[in-house]
Computed example of a mutant assay.
Amino acid sequence: MRLRIFTEPQQGASYETQLTVAKAAEDLGFDAFFRSDHYVKMGDVTGEPGPTDSWITLGALARETSRIRLGTLVTAATFRHPGPLAISVAQVDQMSGGRVDLGLGTGWFEVEHAAYGIPFPSLGERFARLEEQLEIVTGLWGTPGGETYSFGGEHYTLTDSPALPKPAQAGGPPIIIGGTGAKRTPRLAVRYADEYNVPFQQPDDTRAAFDRVRAAYAEAGRTKPLVYSIAQVLCCGRDEAEVKRRAAAIGRDVPELRQNGLAGTPAELVDKLGRFAEMGAERVYLQVLDLHDLEHLELIASEVMPQL
């Protein structure tokens, strides 16, 4: 089981803060540094100094790191047209030497769309746009050199695209699709994804979501392996006082975190992660909400990671 650091910079994090966390995560042996793709803060925080664009940030981090993988959980399909998105992600993949993963989703936070003048269609249309984006992005990356790519859909049309630039990774960066939808999400994951992620669910609900995707996988006759992963908010301490201090710092309640996240001592985390591993989770995205508490990462690296 590999551990990845997952951040929410819209809550209030400069590029410099993200760089510090990414470098610490790399030095401590974590598998990846991921960030959300949001433009407006959530909850009772100021959000200052303001949002940072995910792919501009990851491009800069690509040049400041050397081993750790980089990606989004998840890029909002409402924010960018698929052609320019394919260009941006391919460029960052080149800049990183092939260390990028692309998480792509429908977009869901209506407030940020209103705040920055981004259209926010119905959920059905957002899913339709997401499916076309997945087809286009993977199609552009997969087009052989010297050939062009065209696509005609309900929402996007591409005519004789040169399908450039190509990513460093052959075939393009791995695609991550997440969510717990019962029908559309499994179908899209099986058709397009290299990884399926279940965010912020308890073990029983996670198992049910995994099983739905496994059933769709079998029905489709897919043979290419699919990685199963989870995302959980992190709140670890050597003792109860430290757990409480870290929970208070992110405005959460310890009993609630123990139920809905990864909270408690290192031994408690190892036990709960073992339950997720038994159902097939291979990667864990640790949602770190206090980006100034690097000792939190050090604790996980020294007391949890070696036991996985």
Rank of each mutant, 00 (worst) to 15 (best):
F6W: 12
F6P: 00
T7L: 00
Q11F: 12
Q18Y: 12
A25V: 03
A32L: 02
D37E: 04
H38G: 07
H38M: 06
V45W: 04
T52F: 14
T52E: 11
S54P: 09
L58K: 01
L61F: 02
E64L: 11
S66N: 08
A77Q: 10
T78F: 11
G83E: 09
G83S: 14
L85S: 04
I87T: 15
S88N: 13
Q94A: 07
Q94I: 13
S96C: 03
G97N: 00
G103M: 00
T106K: 04
E110V: 15
E110Q: 15
Y116K: 06
P121Y: 13
E125R: 13
E125V: 15
A128T: 12
E132Q: 07
E132M: 08
Q133L: 01
V137S: 00
G139H: 02
G142Q: 04
G142M: 00
P144Y: 04
G146L: 08
F151P: 08
G152R: 12
G153L: 05
G153C: 04
H155E: 02
T157M: 01
L158K: 06
L158D: 07
D160Q: 11
A170W: 07
A170R: 12
G172L: 03
I175M: 10
K183V: 15
R184L: 14
T185M: 06
L188N: 03
V190E: 03
R191I: 08
E195D: 07
Q201N: 10
T206S: 03
A209C: 05
V213N: 02
R214E: 05
Y217I: 08
Y217S: 07
A218T: 14
E219P: 03
E219S: 09
G221Y: 09
R222G: 12
T223Y: 10
P225F: 10
Y228K: 05
S229A: 05
A231S: 13
C235N: 08
R238C: 05
A241N: 10
E242G: 05
R246E: 10
D253T: 15
V254M: 04
N260D: 11
T265P: 04
L269F: 07
L273A: 02
G280V: 09
G280I: 09
E282K: 14
V288Y: 05
L289V: 10
E295M: 08
L299M: 09
A301K: 04
